[in-house]
Design a protein around this nucleic acid. Structure first.
Lengths: 112, 112
DNA sequence: CGGGTTCATTACCGTCTGGTTATCGAACCC
DNA sequence: GGGTTCGATAACCAGACGGTAATGAACCCG
């Protein structure tokens, strides 16, 4: 429980970077190697490895082993915990927070 | 739209600190002055002012003026945007993501 | 006016972050 | 075994962060 709270720090910190959010977005489509993840970015491979380490430390990414490759996999548990925290504030989102239902509806449609 | 995406950086960064999350939690109960916000923490007042500036830059807090006091108010819009982003990953939260409904139910009960 | 409160601002410090280049290591292929 | 590919590691740098102490501004009150 306390561990969960402490991991919120790491989770939110990991999400506070557009490169890392893009990596997660890519991993949502399936596993990928470090090289594949690095390709879209104008950035060197060690920089991506650093970002991956941040994501791994936050528990957002786990890695397997396939010969010399280290495929990365999305681990969304911390995202769930972060969402739970945020949803606690939904009553402040707008005057009528029944809109959450609508929001969730839209998002459900928006995803294949 | 783009501005929203860029603000995600500031929002998540602001949330990645337990002191700032505690400040938001306090502000969820109503407006408060800097001194009131600082009281629970073993920290100097300028440190709290800095945290408030981070929260303000992220749009999570706005401030009024009451004589020499600067009452802080929660602005939850960015929290909503952050939640929208996170909810886009709910399908990875668990094998059956219908559980979101249960989660939201629990949270609704848990709040007065 | 003068004194106390509230809060911001400045200057400073150590640490963490986000990037680089260069190098090393491990596993594969032939 | 030799070259190649994938990835990690180290050393380094600039800048941001999180805290401090000290000062100063704006206001209320007597």
């Amino acid at each position: 429980m306390v561990a969960t709270l402490e991991r919120l720090d790491a989770t939110f910190a990991a999400l506070a970077d557009p490169t890392r959010r893009a990596i997660l977005s890519r991993l949502a489509k399936g596993e990928a190697t470090v090289k594949e993840l690095a390709a879209p970015f104008d950035m060197t491979q060690p920089a991506i490895s650093k970002h991956l380490k941040v994501l791994e430390r936050a528990g957002l990414v786990s890695r397997g082993r396939d010969a010399q490759r280290r495929p990365c996999r999305l681990e969304a548990g911390p995202l769930r915990e972060a969402t739970e925290w945020l949803v606690g504030y939904r009553q402040f989102w707008s005057e009528s927070y029944e809109r959450l239902d609508a929001l969730l509806g839209e998002l459900t449609e928006g995803q294949s």
